[in-house]
Design a binder for these strands. Sequence first.
DNA 1: AAAATATGCTTAAACGTTTAAGGAAGCAAG
DNA 2: CTTGCTTCCTTAAACGTTTAAGCATATTTT
Lengths: 340, 340
Amino acid sequence: MKKVSLKDIATAAGVSTALVSYVLTNKEKEARVGEEIAKKIREIARKLNYQPNHIARSLKSGRSFTIGLIVADISNPFFGNIARTIEDEAKRNNYTVIFGSSDESSAKSDDLVNVLLNRQVDGLIITPAEGSEHQLRQLQAQNIPFVLIDRFFPEIMASHITVDNYQGAKKAVEHLIRKGRQRIGMIAYKTTLHHISERKRGYQEALQAHGFSASRSLLKTARYSHLKEDMQLAIDQLLNSRHRADAIFFATNSLAIEGLKYINERGIRIPDELAIITFDETDALDLFYCPITFVRQPIPEMGKAAVRVLLEQINQPHKGIEHICIDTTLVVRKSCGKRR
Amino acid sequence: MKKVSLKDIATAAGVSTALVSYVLTNKEKEARVGEEIAKKIREIARKLNYQPNHIARSLKSGRSFTIGLIVADISNPFFGNIARTIEDEAKRNNYTVIFGSSDESSAKSDDLVNVLLNRQVDGLIITPAEGSEHQLRQLQAQNIPFVLIDRFFPEIMASHITVDNYQGAKKAVEHLIRKGRQRIGMIAYKTTLHHISERKRGYQEALQAHGFSASRSLLKTARYSHLKEDMQLAIDQLLNSRHRADAIFFATNSLAIEGLKYINERGIRIPDELAIITFDETDALDLFYCPITFVRQPIPEMGKAAVRVLLEQINQPHKGIEHICIDTTLVVRKSCGKRR
DNA sequence: AAAATATGCTTAAACGTTTAAGGAAGCAAG
DNA sequence: CTTGCTTCCTTAAACGTTTAAGCATATTTT
């Protein structure tokens, strides 16, 4: 039960494979194929249920119509959602998606890039891990089209899609200030990645702009790889000090979730004892007894933009890079309390 | 800056491409390649940074070392987690994963299967949508290896990995009974899919076994495509009737999340006014003010099993099908209250 | 009526691999 | 000195497409 190939159709129709190819790829006009025979070929193709072999086509054309997606972790809903919009958008353009999770490790990411390139992906959409600059430079040297999403490296000239992390963070903190919070803490990942730095900067500048000293002791970090321990320590420090924090701004959804678990454990009441605000949306935040106010990243837009820019880069190699920065929205729930 | 091919290495070494191929695929022994020249070839390959063209290899071998994964929705953490374990396990076996989301639609699923097969995937891991039996039969007729995960069709003889949905549901309901709940409702998807039927059956038989009449009016369903409206209606019906439900068993995590949102909206207190139990784990359930008791499906085991069985089927076509049924665990939190 | 153009098809090479088959050279055995 | 066996390498076909080039035959133009 072998698959049907052009040759089978050609034999059945008593013509050459070339003719079949022309007809089935709708090049009848250019190839001046007779109407009769074209109809016959189509007929036979349908009857034999011909399905083109994409691999052979790719080998010939040098294009696989496949894009590689590297995220930190596909099981994280933020990346799952990104993957979903990229999948849909890719499909609209007749592309399929191969994916891989880097776990924020540049070594794993190296490995993934290699695997995906050997599979001849036409381009990559990457959420780069910390320390993966060399890898991106290599891609550039090889002229492989790629687009960064969620983060980027300022020193690397490459197309990227991000949200305005600085403004987003600023909005979040200003919201807390408006709600009368006096000692606003922040918990971020311990990383030099630019999106996190920008969120930190937004936090700090918002505080300064409103006359608060952005005391270092209120900005805590946790390691991705030791999230639980570091988170507990950070929260303990924020809440046990002489000047207890009365608000916490989490830099990402995974931080918020981990943090809230511990805050629940400690029996701290939101928003009375502590206001909470975070980047990113997730079901968990909706379901919290006191729905969490958050900074929304428009994931569908980001995903669509990523695919669009990547395909442009694939199809028009000399188009130049594109930086897309999308605004965030502050979605106010109840976790910051009322004005006081 | 074209990619380096076997031919380039052959030219550089002054030998034929065949020899290069033998060496680089470690077939020196069988092909009796001279030590000297083998070393030289390897050396050159390294220097030119040769990366094999997977597409060409696939065309020749008829195998792509790619598996297709079709889930209902990659952005749902349950499927995201499945995807993640499958990704990892596939990678361990030098396979990559192409994925697609069917949105529980058999038409979309048809489409996806087609796309993935044209990409010459070696096999498929599928969470089949309702009404997709014909598609699976077609795959069987074409001798395409595939494994079902999460659900299956009893009338179709195919390998599948599931959990013991019947026992899982039974455990959940019995837990509620032990906690003294008298009117236990269930909300499931409106579907004939077997895993859901089994959960319903577990629910009903548990009730009967303990002398409760499994009154139809306590078993509600919601459409995947109209989740929000149907959910609100179902909960209203369960809670507004003369015999108000004092417990709800949700058949999946997405149902639980949607349901809990509405329960929150209505201001119903868990577990005092209403006990909650659900299938599947998710962060949202942990973070709920009253952590939700749930039936855990061992996702990593399921994913690993799926890859294992699929690869067996790919490599030993006459091995026969395999049915793997994994036990669930009841994870008790606080949402069912204390005994009363 | 010869030349030019149009029409409808085939041939053959190419993409980058893999691998069966073949061949030249060297050497041992008869 | 033929025969046969190693050893080491090459040739060439194949996988399923795409597509430039070529070749008849028919039709139009001069």
